Amino acid sequence: MESALNELKLMQGLLAAFVLSGLIGWEREKRNRSAGLRTHILVGVSAALFMVLSETLVITFAGRDDQVRFDLIGVLGAVVSGVSFLGAGAIFSSKAGHQAKGLTTAAGLLATAAVGVACGLHLYVLATGATLLFLLTLGPLSRLSERIAGESED
C-alpha cells in the first residue's frame, strides 16, 4: 500500500507536466502548428517521467552498492538530445534555402521538455514561471514581432 501511495505522489510531477505542457501545446494548436497539444503533452510528460524514474532509481539503489553509479546529468542530456532530434525533424528549409520553417516549433518542443524535467524534479514554481515566460514569448511577443516586421516592409 505504501508503494502505491509513493507512486501516486510521484504522479504529481507528471500531472503538473501534463497541465503546463498542455498550455504550451494549446497555444501552438490554436495557431495551427504541426506540433500542437498532444505532441507537447507527450514531450513534457515523457521528460518528467524520465526524471522521476531516474530519481527513483537513485533513491532505490544508491545505498545498496558502492559500485553502482547514477548520472542524472546524463539522463537530462539524453532527454535534451532526444527532443532536439525530434525538433530537428520539424525544421524545413525553403527550396531557395533562404528561410527555415519550424524553428519555433523545435524550440517549443525543447522548452516543453525543460518544463517537463522541472516538473519531474518537483520544481513546480520554476516550471510554472518558465511556462508563463514561454507563453509570453509565443503569444504577445510573437504578435509584436510580426507587427514590427510588417512595419519594416512598408
Score class of each variant (00 low, 15 high):
2 E>G: 06
2 E>S: 13
5 L>Y: 10
9 K>S: 14
10 L>F: 09
10 L>I: 05
18 F>R: 03
18 F>I: 04
20 L>A: 08
21 S>R: 02
21 S>E: 04
22 G>Y: 05
23 L>T: 03
24 I>V: 12
24 I>Q: 01
24 I>Y: 00
25 G>K: 04
25 G>H: 05
26 W>N: 01
27 E>P: 00
28 R>E: 01
30 K>C: 07
30 K>I: 11
31 R>I: 04
31 R>F: 07
35 A>Y: 08
37 L>Y: 13
37 L>D: 07
38 R>N: 09
39 T>E: 12
41 I>S: 02
43 V>I: 15
46 S>W: 00
47 A>H: 06
49 L>R: 04
50 F>M: 13
51 M>W: 01
52 V>W: 05
55 E>Y: 12
55 E>G: 08
59 I>M: 14
60 T>S: 15
63 G>D: 06
66 D>W: 06
67 Q>I: 03
68 V>P: 00
69 R>T: 14
72 L>S: 14
75 V>S: 04
77 G>I: 02
78 A>Y: 08
78 A>V: 13
78 A>L: 11
78 A>N: 14
79 V>P: 06
80 V>P: 06
81 S>F: 12
83 V>N: 07
83 V>G: 09
85 F>G: 07
86 L>Q: 09
87 G>C: 08
88 A>D: 03
89 G>E: 11
89 G>C: 11
90 A>V: 05
91 I>E: 00
91 I>G: 00
92 F>Q: 09
92 F>Y: 10
92 F>K: 10
98 H>T: 10
98 H>A: 04
99 Q>V: 08
100 A>C: 03
101 K>L: 01
102 G>W: 00
106 A>E: 07
107 A>T: 06
109 L>K: 00
110 L>C: 12
112 T>C: 15
112 T>H: 05
113 A>M: 02
117 V>Q: 06
118 A>M: 10
118 A>Y: 00
119 C>L: 06
119 C>W: 07
124 Y>L: 12
126 L>A: 12
128 T>M: 10
128 T>G: 11
128 T>N: 05
128 T>P: 01
129 G>T: 14
130 A>W: 03
133 L>S: 14
135 L>W: 06
136 L>P: 08
137 T>A: 14
137 T>D: 02
137 T>K: 04
139 G>H: 12
139 G>S: 15
140 P>S: 11
142 S>R: 09
142 S>W: 07
144 L>T: 07
145 S>I: 13
148 I>K: 05
150 G>Y: 09
150 G>I: 13
152 S>Q: 12
